[in-house]
Simulated scan of single mutants.
Amino acid sequence: MSVPALMSNLRPELKPGYDAALDQREKFLNKYKNSKSTHENFARETNRYLFWLYFVHGVDITLQTQDEITSYIDFLMNPPDKYVGIKRPLTHEDWKPLNGPLRESSLKLVKSSLNAFMVYLIGKRFIKFNPVIGLAKIQVEETDVDTEIEKTRERYLTLEVFTKSLAAVKILHERLEVDSDKRMYFARNRFILCFYYLTMVRISEFAKINSNHIVIIDKATNDWGVKVLGKGRKMREIPLHPTLVKEIELYHDMPIEAFSKGEPQPLLKPLIGQGNLESKSLSAIVKTMFTEIADYFKMELNDEETEDAVRHASSHWLRHTGGSHLLLNGADLVVVRDILGHASVVTTNTYLHTDSKKVIKNAIGKLSI
Rank of each mutant, 00 (worst) to 15 (best):
11 R>A: 15
180 S>G: 09
90 L>G: 10
32 Y>S: 01
171 I>P: 00
176 L>S: 04
243 T>Y: 12
215 V>W: 05
273 G>H: 08
68 E>A: 13
166 L>K: 11
318 L>R: 05
11 R>M: 14
247 E>H: 13
196 Y>L: 14
225 G>M: 03
356 S>N: 12
166 L>W: 12
51 F>K: 07
99 N>H: 08
14 L>I: 07
261 K>Q: 15
98 L>A: 06
12 P>G: 06
140 V>N: 03
10 L>H: 06
99 N>L: 05
306 T>A: 09
204 S>M: 10
178 V>A: 13
4 P>C: 04
157 L>F: 07
291 T>I: 08
79 P>K: 05
186 F>D: 00
291 T>R: 14
53 L>H: 03
16 P>A: 06
78 N>Y: 10
66 Q>M: 12
34 N>H: 13
155 R>G: 00
280 K>S: 15
61 I>L: 13
309 A>L: 08
228 V>D: 01
142 E>H: 14
228 V>W: 06
121 L>Y: 06
96 K>Q: 12
320 H>S: 11
289 M>H: 03
137 K>H: 10
236 R>H: 02
324 S>P: 03
167 A>F: 11
270 P>F: 02
282 L>M: 14
92 H>Y: 13
344 S>D: 15
150 E>V: 15
217 I>M: 15
14 L>P: 03
161 V>Y: 03
167 A>N: 14
7 M>P: 01
352 L>V: 14
110 V>N: 02
172 L>S: 00
51 F>V: 02
158 T>F: 03
329 N>A: 15
137 K>R: 15
80 P>Q: 09
201 V>K: 02
311 R>M: 02
2 S>G: 13
33 K>L: 07
